[in-house]
């Protein structure tokens, strides 16, 4: 195994470690803080799907039945 390959593998292991620590420890603790809780409550109250904020353009589309209701 040459130097470059081993460096890459160490890099991959470091990324896996960072993912484990972030999702296994850091984020669960963050989600218990007041600031985050209030923010989540607000979006819930307004009916905003945060999953659609950046990536999903049609997830919040009204279902077919609503559209039909509007057409009537």
């Amino acid at each position: 195994m040459n130097d470059r390959t081993s460096r890459h593998r160490v890099g991959l292991l470091l990324i896996l470690f960072a993912i484990t620590v972030t999702w296994g420890w850091l984020l669960p603790r963050l989600s218990r803080t007041d600031v985050i809780r209030q923010r989540i409550d607000r979006t819930d109250r307004l009916g905003i799907n945060p999953a659609a904020i950046y990536y999903t353009d049609v997830f919040v589309a009204p279902p077919v039945s609503l559209t039909r209701g509007e057409l009537k």
Binding site: I19, W23, L30, I36, I40, P50, Y54, T56
Partner: peptide, 18 residues
Amino acid sequence: FVMAGQSVVKEYGFEYVF
């Protein structure tokens, strides 16, 4: 999907595609 499902991550809009 599991990474995107964490409440903090989800709240800030970093969804599964990312």
